[in-house]
Nucleic acid binder design. Structure first.
Lengths: 351, 351
DNA sequence: CTGTTAGCGCGTTCAC
DNA sequence: GTGAACGCGCTAACAG
């Protein structure tokens, strides 16, 4: 097993190639990068030498040190990736982001919040960072990024200094939906919220939990609901899924049930509807349900959810555009997106 | 705007911090990395100096050059990301992969195949690469990676030298499903395949298209079907979705229709069923449909798809484990996963 | 068109 | 416990 102690399996580098080709390292560099005037003959000699030495081209690590750019943009999500991937809105957003960054030749590095056991935000060679639905817990990391001169864009996150924000009208939009219910005569309204903590714990929606929550989007939507129904309560789901909505719905509809439910995502809303079906409660006759997101869910029929349609792909795309501008030295303005209220057939007048 | 021409906005580096703290750079380095004997007093002085200079810690780019590791694993998908994200199997696989790599502190860099306009596989500072469903078109890139000593793992990809493969029994599994249909007395069977080219073109399944296809998984599944029905034909879908299945189904069931359909994904299968419903064709009485993947689709009820359940998360996880082992200098063995045939209520005897 | 000179910012030897 | 020196692999300037 020590038989390779002698053969010095050291990889060829640019200098070695240059030496073999009989040119200077810088010339060889130009031959590879294509940028700069190099005679065809010289380039050919360099490439031949590279092939002979089995040299695969300049090392990206060294290039990124030298150039000060790695071509990598970090994306930090609050949840573990496996959770994040389950949410269609995250996927849509990543979609837009990847599209825009890919066009600019930038790769997307998936990271998780510090402490979640995942890759550390502080050790990756990135040119810029996108925070997705992150809490101010990230303050410290963000400061470190600023110190390195790495621009930071945040999508639906608590405001932080020197962070460009791409926002959604979560609060106002939810308030719109709530007013819709109010106008339909509903007063006994309950919430099914997205997770409030990184732990994704289910349970009753209490003031303590709201106060201690780090989930920006969830909290904004709660605020919006309270703008209309100040004392609204409800339950917290462990994720954005039909399954979770079903669990929450069963809990909520078991006893002393509300006449309307504001679910913080369409998947949750559909779950609540399923729970109602189970219990023989008719939607929208006996129970009105509103969602959020505006995703098309296969098999939701015959229900057409009353919901808030948010431009998820556009959010990601806007973040991507902003990043590209920031890296080019520009100063893009913050963006705010609005959700469109769409009335379906899952809400009706209270009886 | 030139008022900063004088203040030299150069970022502080470790040397500057060391100088201010009155220690040598190497000592300062140790103070940050924690690895090595440094007195508490010295460390404190270094950290104080760092704070004073607004120094955010060692530069990851330089670290990765020096250490020869960047902590980044590239994931190359054949499709544009927006396509890839729509496929639940890809998501599940990424899920498992991210989970395993995250635990090892490795970040996931999303890349696309060269030529797709996205970030280039060759320029990213990665420690290892995972190829997902990629064709041998990547041969050249893979060679370049090998030259750099970057280990490559491929999930469901054409075999390439020195690439560790994590495979799925696509062919055998499909053959199992086909035999099931055969035993039910079906002989007029048609295929609805996943895309065969990066362009995602719909159309009839022709020999030319199969021959020219770069899609490994699709082709393997076609082979499996042909092991049982040698002359089976069908149509090519433009993606893995209910919508696409619906389009394919309409086409296939319009005239001269088969008694059974082998769809290459559950989403496609469900779309075919929807098309049948539209046309008043009963499933499974008039038409048998089998899928692939074993995803739970919301709203598929009352259908319980006859399908092949594949361990998607496990595939990703296995790739992650393999990567970690490879980076640790080990030589993990290739893995082959098998799909489980699950009989639902969408297949019945031919009439 | 090509060569020379300097680093990029850091980590790691090895001495002391 | 700390410092000095060197080099990771490459490329931006300039000089010729």
């Amino acid at each position: 097993m020590e038989d390779r102690a002698s053969d010095k399996p050291t990889r060829p580098n640019l200098a070695a190639v240059a030496a073999l080709a009989g040119v200077s390292p810088s010339t060889a560099s130009l031959a590879f990068s294509g940028a700069g005037p190099v005679s065809d003959a010289t380039r050919a000699r360099v490439l031949a030498a590279a092939e002979q030495l089995n040299y695969g081209g300049p090392d990206p690590r060294a290039q990124s040190l030298r150039r000060g750019r790695s071509g990598i943009v970090g994306v930090v999500m609050e949840d573990r990736l496996r959770e994040a991937f389950r949410d269609p809105m995250n996927i849509a957003m990543l979609d837009g982001l990847a599209d825009e960054l890919g066009t600019a030749g930038l790769g997307l590095l998936l990271l998780t919040e510090p402490g979640s056991g995942g890759p550390e935000l502080s050790v990756a060679p990135m040119d810029a960072v996108v925070l997705v639905g992150c809490s101010t817990q990230l303050d410290k990391s963000v400061v470190a990024l600023h110190q390195r001169g790495i621009p930071v864009v945040a999508i639906e996150a608590e405001h932080m200094p020197d962070v460009l924000s791409i926002d959604l009208d979560n609060r106002d939009a939810t308030a719109t939906a709530a007013r819709h219910l109010q106008q339909l005569g509903h007063s006994r309204v309950a919430l099914v919220t997205l997770p409030l903590e990184p732990t994704h714990a289910r349970g009753e929606l209490t003031e303590e939990r709201i106060a201690g929550s780090t989930a920006f989007t969830s909290k904004e939507r709660i605020r919006g609901a309270r703008d209309v129904f100040p004392s609204i309560g409800g339950v917290v789901a462990a994720g954005s899924s039909v399954e979770e909505g079903l669990i929450a719905g069963r809990e909520l509809l078991a006893a002393d049930r509300p006449t309307a439910v504001i679910a913080q995502s369409d998947l949750l809303a559909l779950g609540v509807i399923r729970a109602a079906e189970e219990l023989g409660i008719r939607v929208p006759d006996d129970l009105s349900v509103v969602g959020f997101d505006g995703v098309r869910i296969e098999g939701a029929a015959p229900y057409e959810l009353t919901t808030l349609v948010q431009p998820a792909v556009e959010k990601g795309r806007a973040a991507g555009v902003a990043i590209v501008e920031l890296l080019a030295g520009g100063s893009p303005a913050p963006r705010g997106f609005t959700s469109e209220f769409r009335v379906g057939n899952t809400t009706a007048a209270a009886r």
